[in-house]
Simulated scan of single mutants.
Amino acid sequence: MSFTVYLSGEIHTDWREEIRRGAEAAGLDVAFTAPVTDHDASDAAGDHLGPQSEGFWRDHKSSKVNAIRTKTLIEQSDLVVVRFGDKYKQWNAAFDAGYCAALGKPYVTLHGDDIVHPLKEVDAAAMAWASTPAEVVEILRYVLRG
């Protein structure tokens, strides 16, 4: 069996690479997709649509352009991993988890135990909560190989 896994959320650490390396080392047939993880490029995704005098409209246009990618890749995935880091509040990650829940798309949350309480509703709709990338790889191993 093969899987497509969308890696959503926090962009300031190498958790995506840890999961990719772990899946490759385990010989898992997984294709990974992700949002644009270059913060400046993501913020500028709508800049080609013309200048805006207010930051809100720049963010609005860029979020719409980014949503084309996010929505499409989530819908095409078999599983979504949603990472919540400890440094920033990832409202976009929470939105992605909610979108998965609305679609009935299975997702796994990935975060430390220090934010279990604020994520209780997000975790309640998830199929699993992992606290390390290695645990995500083990979930994938089990799902793909039994």
Rank of each mutant, 00 (worst) to 15 (best):
R145M: 01
A102E: 05
G85W: 04
T4D: 06
D43C: 14
L103T: 04
S131T: 06
S8R: 04
W15L: 00
R83P: 02
T13L: 01
P35F: 10
D114Y: 07
L7Y: 04
A128H: 06
L49N: 11
S62P: 08
L49V: 08
A126K: 02
V82E: 01
D114R: 03
D40I: 09
L7S: 00
G50F: 09
S8D: 03
N66C: 13
T37Y: 14
A34P: 06
W91Y: 13
D123N: 11
Y88N: 14
G98M: 07
H12C: 04
A34L: 15
V81E: 04
F95H: 07
R58H: 11
R141Y: 10
L140T: 03
S42F: 15
L7W: 05
N66F: 10
L49M: 13
A67G: 08
S42C: 09
A125C: 14
R21A: 07
S42N: 13
G9W: 01
Q52R: 14
G98E: 05
G112N: 04
G112F: 06
D29I: 09
H12P: 00
Y88E: 15
S131L: 00
W57L: 06
V80T: 11
G46T: 12
N66L: 08
H111S: 03
G146W: 06
F32P: 11
I68S: 08
A67S: 15
W91M: 07
G22M: 00
S42G: 15
A134E: 08
I74W: 11
D43V: 11
P118R: 12
Y99E: 02
G55H: 08
R58S: 07
F56P: 03
V82I: 04
V82F: 07
W91D: 11
D114A: 11
D113L: 03
H60G: 00
G50D: 09
I139K: 00
A101C: 10
K120A: 14
T72F: 07
E75D: 08
S131I: 01
W91G: 06
A134L: 02
A93I: 09
C100K: 00
A101P: 02
A101I: 08
L119D: 03
A102D: 02
R145F: 02
A130C: 10
Q90C: 12
A128Y: 09
V137Y: 01
C100N: 04
A25R: 12
N66A: 14
A26P: 02
D86S: 12
K61M: 08
S42H: 14
W91S: 09
S62T: 08
D113P: 02
T70E: 10
E10I: 02
A94M: 10
G50W: 12
